[in-house]
Amino acid sequence: TTIEWNGTKITVDNPQKAKELAKKIAKKLGLTVKVHGNTITIE
């Protein structure tokens, strides 16, 4: 699972952990999480 935001890509083996990490990042930055299959985008 890949997390993408602002040109940065982070690959996380565990999809559940990836989703939790994305939510934490999005919350800190005041952004939203969008899931597209194996890609999680923070916008």
Rank of each mutant, 00 (worst) to 15 (best):
K19D: 04
K17Q: 10
K17M: 11
I10V: 07
G30P: 01
A22L: 03
G30E: 02
I40H: 01
K28Q: 10
K24G: 04
K9Q: 10
E20Y: 13
T41I: 14
T1N: 07
T41A: 05
I3V: 09
T32Y: 06
L21C: 08
G7T: 09
G37I: 03
W5E: 03
N38F: 05
E20A: 15
I42R: 00
K9F: 13
A18D: 00
L31N: 02
T2F: 09
I40E: 00
N6S: 08
V12L: 13
K17H: 09
T1C: 11
T11Q: 10
T41D: 02
A22P: 00
K9H: 10
N6Y: 12
I42D: 00
T11N: 07
V35C: 07
A22K: 01
T8C: 15
Q16W: 13
V33W: 06
G37K: 05
G7D: 05
N14L: 04
G30N: 07
K34D: 02
K27Q: 14
K27S: 11
K27G: 08
K19C: 15
N14F: 04
K9G: 03
K19T: 08
N38T: 08
G7L: 06
L21D: 01
T1V: 14
G30M: 03
I42T: 01
E43L: 14
I40Y: 02
T41R: 11
A18W: 05
L21K: 02
K19A: 11
L31M: 14
H36V: 13
N6R: 08
I25C: 05
K34R: 13
T2C: 10
T2L: 10
K9L: 09
A18Y: 03
T2V: 13
I10C: 13
K23I: 13
G7R: 05
T11W: 15
K9E: 05
K19P: 01
T41P: 00
N38M: 06
K34F: 08
H36P: 00
I42F: 14
K27V: 08
T32A: 09
V33T: 04
G7C: 06
A18H: 01
K17P: 01
K23H: 14
D13Q: 14
Q16C: 04
A26D: 01
N38H: 08
K23L: 13
N6A: 09
L29N: 06
I10P: 00
D13R: 14
E20G: 05
I25S: 00
K28W: 14
N6I: 08
L29W: 14
T39R: 11
W5C: 10
E4N: 08
I3L: 08
N6E: 09
N38D: 08
V12W: 03
I25L: 09
I10T: 02
T8D: 05
A18N: 00
K27P: 00
I40K: 00
K34I: 12
I40R: 00
T39C: 08
Q16N: 11
V12R: 01
T2Y: 07
T1P: 07
N38Y: 03
V33S: 02
A22Y: 02
A26K: 07
